[in-house]
Design a protein around this nucleic acid. Sequence first.
DNA 1: GGAGACAACTGGTCAATACCAGTTGGCCGA
DNA 2: TCGGCCAACTGGTATTGACCAGTTGTCTCC
Lengths: 271, 271
Amino acid sequence: MGVLTSARRDQRERRVTAVADNARRVPAYRQVADDLRARIVSGEYPSGSLIPSERELVEEFGISRPTVRNALDLLRNEGVILVEHGRGAFVRPTPTVHRLARNRLSRKAREDNQGTFLGDAATGGWTPSVSVRVRFESADERIAGLLAIAPGTEVCVRDRLMRADGIPVQLATSWLPRDITRDSVLEQMDTGPGGAYARIEEMGHRLTMFEELVGSRMPTSDELVSLQLAAGIPVLTVTRVAIAEGGRPVEVNDMVLSSERYQLHYMLSAE
Amino acid sequence: MGVLTSARRDQRERRVTAVADNARRVPAYRQVADDLRARIVSGEYPSGSLIPSERELVEEFGISRPTVRNALDLLRNEGVILVEHGRGAFVRPTPTVHRLARNRLSRKAREDNQGTFLGDAATGGWTPSVSVRVRFESADERIAGLLAIAPGTEVCVRDRLMRADGIPVQLATSWLPRDITRDSVLEQMDTGPGGAYARIEEMGHRLTMFEELVGSRMPTSDELVSLQLAAGIPVLTVTRVAIAEGGRPVEVNDMVLSSERYQLHYMLSAE
DNA sequence: GGAGACAACTGGTCAATACCAGTTGGCCGA
DNA sequence: TCGGCCAACTGGTATTGACCAGTTGTCTCC
């Protein structure tokens, strides 16, 4: 006999007595989800531990398996549990958050290390690694607008996948006008010490500003795979435009970060 | 007879021929979701329109209702459709994005209008309204740390719900040390022209810096209700610390924004 | 002793069915 | 004419039953 039997009877009695409150009958699958969530936050099911199997929960609560699965789906979409076929459902360990340093784009920070991602790694104390793919294409409407060039102009595109301690944490795609990158190391996979921004400056485009546009959304299925995201975890999106002396935009950088592992840190003047 | 019958037979034949590819059998509910999603992006089901009812889809695809619901749940969690009990499922219209201005915290912007939210409204051209609740409590660990005060010190807490054109778009909670707010309009609901920051400066705390920490997560059930969020839409979280001359933090502000309706805009110096 | 088969778990998918709960519009009676 | 009721839609919740598909430990056979 499950706990829900009495709970439901209570609800029914409340309805019968026609109390004026708006309290709705709580569906069984919600009750189960709430119960399990409570056990997790209370520590009864510690982080990383296996929670009872679906069939065990069927027994315990006295409800059918679809209803149990409905409850577990809720917790999964909230990012509370992690389900593995053939193994079971685990309490999701909360990963450490990498805080993107507020000064990550300052000239000094850029000179001190190999690039912004490697700089973040140095600040955060984790081991970075990057996979790069370079290709060329015609600028579409959006990129052309952000780079202030004509649509169709050839641009150099750098796709990168960044890892922290081997775990994929960030996807980035940069677009640079080809007239800046042509015959430079920017069209190679490794841009050398100081990163791409150092090379851009060496070619006479002194950077003055970075503009960042921050949003958030659920990951696409591609991102879900490449960032190894769990269900119910959104991504942070950052579009950065690097602006050189004279106001010319020289790079657009679209970043996708696991919201579970990243926070962005900004410092703004009050003036 | 549904479209899936032949699709599934194809899969089975492919398995029998033992082709070396890793193509898995695609579950029926996934196929239905993919099909419906394709119809939506193709424009066959325009934005805001009603898609066929669950029972109609059962007929069309020749599958059971639980399977249809499974497919619709997918689309719902992706934010593709919006389901209303008793009415049907609608193609989700993509709402307009409010871009939080890069200069929203500059002194000039603050002087020009009633506060940052009202300033954003002026920039974005929508009609703002705010509900405020003021209360007092003891600072917990986190707030005390951010405000550089002793835990347990009494603080003034301002809870706000901001609306754009009547639609709730932002939740904010501010903590201010009571020694700053005592006997001031900051403990009233309406802080007057220029907003809270203007009052803080009038009391002799000239603001020099704002620090912002940006993250993202799925909404809590409370936030889901008060921000009227659809399933599958994450929220942006911003923790802002206002720092006065001399380096003293004078306000901590936790903001929760619908990621669907907000983007944050930052401008960073390259120096 | 080691490799492989297999049993016994785990979750994943799907059907058929029943009834509850909002919404809507039309019909009927006052 | 107008108000209210009700039928016929819509999605929401839950059951029972079945079989598929990964994972893992054990047991047997070589």
